[in-house]
Design a protein around this nucleic acid. Structure first.
Lengths: 109, 109
DNA sequence: TCTATTTATTGTAATATTACGATTAATGTG
DNA sequence: CACATTAATCGTAATATTACAATAAATAGA
């Protein structure tokens, strides 16, 4: 046990859950918000900005990169990160489709 | 360690992460989709619908109820569940505000 | 009251996540 | 090349999550 039974759910359900899961930690939310705020590449100062240790930030960045939400380019000794606009849009589409369902609520308790 | 440092993040960041986290499991996504599809109270047949054991479903329902996304009414021997439309709307607002950020991407790597 | 039905709770095993110190890898500069 | 700087990886401790068997709680009907 302790392991999610992905095989009993649809691809769509797993995809929604996967996106939501990666957004399910405040550090990753903060990283994405920071990248958005700057609206450009961020080279290096992420560790200073969020209040977590460097390996922890690196770990969170890895997860965001793994899902494709950000991309990183090596730039000298530092790495520049930014939002991957295309994949962000894809995620937005998937999540919005789920969140924006119409609710008639014709009869409810 | 192993415990999220919520105190170093803003309330908004924690709120977004909390919503996302509860959507971060396919069983909970499936439950919400099912409630939406029926567009009415669901009394009892949730365990048959999702392919998980009854205590597991009960646990997921508890988390959804805890965040306010669903509400349950006791109806005889069974319990009727449905989406809490008001709270769902609140979540949608919070999540959309985060997801719909504009990205100029004036200079990116 | 007894029984059947349905949901919640408890307990627990397996696994995943979070965080960070220590170390390694990669690259630019003197 | 040696050294400084920065990010990634490794190892690991603490905690959280997921799943389910067993049991308890609640209620309807006989």
């Amino acid at each position: 046990m302790g392991l999610t039974k992905t095989e009993i759910f649809t691809d769509k359900q797993n995809q929604i859950a996967q996106y939501a899961k990666v957004l399910g930690h405040p550090a990753r939310v903060a990283i994405l918000q920071y990248l958005y705020k700057l609206n450009a590449c961020v080279c290096g100062d992420l560790v200073g900005e969020i209040g977590l240790a460097q390996p922890t930030i690196s770990q969170h960045l890895k997860e965001l990169k793994h899902l494709g939400l950000i991309k990183g380019n090596v730039e000298g000794t530092s790495v520049c990160y930014c939002i991957d606009a295309d994949n962000w849009k894809k995620m937005k589409t998937v999540m919005s489709e789920f969140l924006d369902q119409d609710l008639n609520q014709k009869d409810c308790c």
